[in-house]
Write a protein that binds this DNA or RNA. Structure first.
Length: 703
RNA sequence: UGGGGGAUCGUUUAGUGGCAAGACGACAGGUUCUGGCCCUGUUAACCGAGGUUCGAAUCCUCGUCCCCCAGCCA
């Protein structure tokens, strides 16, 4: 049973509860999920699915239909119909025998249209597309009535029948509702309800060459199916008067339309159009690319239906536009997989470890717990031998502060195996890269505990070199670098924020032998790394492939990051102060003196490498230089820098690599908008910008 | 400048005239054979200005800001 947890409460559910109390609709609750089969379902649709099917499930006798809104054959396809059905089922919902298509109602819809004509409430209009637009008026001016508005009922009926019979070409005529061309609601200015489209429909074939529009179709389909609550997204709010108008004029059963805010997720996009673009332009491998917010993409990535449903439960339903933090989605997955995923050991970036005092050729089978969260999942055996692999990240020749892992002279635990002590490291003389680490083990610590109560500061995962299985692992990160790529304030195209590091493929990973034959879709926790799922597309072809579904929360990366920014800020703080460039605003109640500004503020400063493409003096300013800088964003930024005194010939700056504070609020100046700040320092008289000699790329983060 | 909607911790959602609550995040600590899980604590909000009231996030007035609408798309 879905929704075992207490049902969430929201304004829609309260509304339905009120209706039930008033015995509206004879106590029936009947919803529907009405996708248009013109694309794949995404997490935003999941919200709607969970809402509609959820409400039906929560109410006694409640039902939810699946109805395809297939009124535009030029965009729709059976491929999408099938994928949508599969996705809903995978999410765990069941429409029973109530699978419908708006196209099932075409004949009845046609009759309704004829009825409207007979009531004098609809007319055939011969205006062109362009003319209809002109006659509609604007947001502030009323529209004008079509010269065809007052055709007789007989003529309208005749013309409409002939439209159906295919006598007229596409675009030559439409059927319009006769409402009010002066209505402040544009939707009520004689909306089109039928258009001519000589296009084959994926279900009705060539039976029809006229197709009904959404507004006409949707409400009447709801009515035909006896839907009590027709739940849709906010943008249809101003369509509600029209929804109501059709039902009232035709005097048929009148469902209630209720609108809620669609889901937006940080670091991704949700519009079908944009998603399609990513697929068609090849920025992703397909609708099922594990970085896509599509249901099929999330599924391939390793999300479970339970985690998605739980997520939908948590985000709530309201009318406020919102962007949910993707961290909440990730949290829901971790929470689910923590309970269910078996733990295994896998080494992604292998470093060879030789246990010098372990007998050559010997193998031991050590017992490991499958899931500490669920003892019922039992134990398994894993092979141990003299040569092992550990994670490269788990060894440091010169350990930073708070690094607890393996380092020369230090003893650590190999999970479920032995304590080992590092006695040496082999380096590639040319590159300086560590190629092998030598250790000794303490036979007394077999199983991972020391009889003398000795403690170690960390436990490492490992695999036996000889027994491990090679695997490919794909690491994913957010598809976009911006929280809200779709609506950038600067008006950039969402594609300019694609994250170049959203996919990293690791080909020489080693996993423990127990999962050599894991089935596609199986979930595991790779201890200390994250949750991984066997890829269901590429695994068969080329050996086993794992997708990283989500990382484990990781305190060490936070410590490491904090250490880096500490160094960075200590250096940069001075420069910024000297330049007098940044005044950090303190909160009202913040009692700290200004000189004790917290490190948090500085960790938010985004320093980027930029190449200066143009530099020129500005007429009317003896201090500023105007610079166009490339930060690798696909466009140049205009920056005004107060460095003219140091650069009488600004062209010297062209081609120089400099550091730019990239995340400052664009500042309007007399000469234009300044989109950043160039780091510079020095005393009066020897001021200069900070430049680079190495080979950093534009947009590289400076730390 | 017309119409329709919306503003509560960083994010999200409760609270509808009587103690501003939870979740995620962030931060700090405890525990630990996963720097995971778990536990504890800290941080942090009613868009603004008036008014009504013993008492306002909630009711009233006037503002401000944000979203949607000018497809023969849905």
């Amino acid at each position: 049973m879905i929704n075992a947890k207490p049902a969430p409460s929201d304004f829609i559910r309260s509304m339905i509860a009120e209706d039930l109390k008033a015995n509206k609709n004879d106590g029936r609750v009947h919803t529907r999920f009405p996708p248009e089969p013109n694309g794949y379902l995404h997490i935003g649709h999941a919200k709607s699915i969970c809402l509609n099917f959820g409400i039906a499930a929560e109410n006694k006798g409640g039902l939810c239909n699946l109805r395809f809104d297939d009124t535009n054959p030029s965009k729709e396809d059976v491929e999408y119909v099938e994928s949508i059905k599969a996705d809903i089922q995978w999410l765990g919902y069941d429409w029973g025998d109530r699978l419908y298509y708006a196209s099932d109602y075409f004949e009845q819809l046609y009759e309704y249209a004829l009825q409207l004509i007979n009531y004098g409430k609809a007319y055939v209009c011969d205006l062109s597309l362009q003319e209809i637009r002109e006659y509609r008026g604007t947001l502030t001016e009323p529209g004008r009535e079509s010269p065809y508005r007052n055709r007789s009922v007989g003529e309208n009926a005749d013309l409409f029948k002939r439209m159906r019979d295919g006598e007229f070409p596409d675009g030559s005529r439409v059927l319009r509702a006769k409402i009010d061309m002066a209505s402040p609601n544009l939707n009520m200015r004689d909306p089109v309800i039928y258009r001519i489209l000589h296009t084959s429909h994926h279900r009705t074939g060539d039976t029809w060459c006229i197709y009904p529009m959404y507004d006409f179709t949707h409400g009447l389909s709801d009515s035909i199916e006896g839907i009590t609550h027709s739940i849709c997204t906010l943008e249809f709010e101003d369509h509600r008067p029209l929804y109501d108008w059709f039902l009232d004029e035709l005097k048929v059963f009148h469902p209630q339309q209720i609108e809620f805010a669609r889901l937006n997720l940080s670091y991704t996009i949700m519009s079908k159009r944009s998603l399609l673009e990513l697929v068609e332009l090849g920025f992703v491998s397909g609708w099922d690319d594990p970085r896509m917010p599509t249901i099929i993409g999330l599924r391939r990535r390793g999300f479970t239906p339970e985690s998605i449903r739980e997520f939908c439960n948590r985000i709530g339903v309201a009318k406020k536009d919102s962007t949910v933090d993707v961290a909440l989605l990730e949290h829901s997955l971790r929470e689910d997989l923590n309970k269910r995923a078996p733990r295994v050991m896998a080494v992604l970036r292998p470093l060879r470890v030789v246990i010098d005092n372990y007998p050559e050729g010997k193998t031991e089978q050590l017992e490991a717990i499958n899931n500490p969260e669920d003892p019922a999942m039992g134990t398994r055996k894993i092979p141990f031998s003299r040569v092992l692999y550990i994670e490269r990240d788990d060894f440091r020749e010169n350990p930073p502060h708070k690094f607890f892992r393996l380092t020369p002279g230090r003893e650590v635990r190999l999970r479920y195996a032995y304590f080992i002590t590092c006695v040496g490291a082999v380096k590639d003389e040319k590159t300086g890269e560590i190629t092998e680490v030598h250790c000794t083990y303490d036979p007394q610590t077999k199983g991972g505990d020391s009889p003398d109560g000795r403690k170690v500061k960390s436990t490492l995962h490992w695999v036996s070199a000889e027994h491990s299985v090679n695997a490919e692992v794909r690491l994913y990160d957010h598809l976009f670098t911006r929280e809200n790529p779709a609506n950038s304030k600067e008006g950039h195209d969402f594609k300019s924020f694609l994250n170049p590091n959203s996919l990293e493929i690791l080909e020489s990973c080693h996993v423990e032998p127990s999962i050599a034959n894991a089935a596609p879709g199986e979930h595991f926790q790779f201890e200390r790394l994250g949750y991984f799922t066997v890829d269901n597309v590429d695994s068969k072809k080329r050996g086993i492939v794992f997708n990283r579904s989500v990382t484990l929360r990781d305190k060490w990366v936070k410590i490491e990051k904090a250490q880096k920014t500490e160094v960075k800020t200590a250096k940069e703080e001075k420069k910024l102060e000297r330049h007098g460039a940044i005044t950090l605003e303190r909160k009202k109640d913040d009692a700290r003196p200004a000189e004790e500004i917290g490190i948090d503020y500085f960790s938010k400063i985004d320093l980027r490498v930029a190449v200066i493409k143009e530099a020129s003096h500005i007429e009317g300013s003896d201090k500023l230089i105007r610079v166009m800088a490339d930060l690798g964003e696909g466009h140049l930024r205009q920056i005004f820098a107060g460095i003219r005194s140091a650069y009488p010939d600004p062209s010297k700056l062209v081609g120089k690599k400099v550091i730019v504070v990239a995340n400052l609020k664009p500042r309007k100046m007399k000469f234009g908008v300044s989109e950043g700040m160039i780091l510079s320092g020095g005393q009066e008289g020897n001021l200069s910008v900070t430049t680079f000699d190495g080979n950093p790329l534009p947009g590289d983060e400076v730390s």
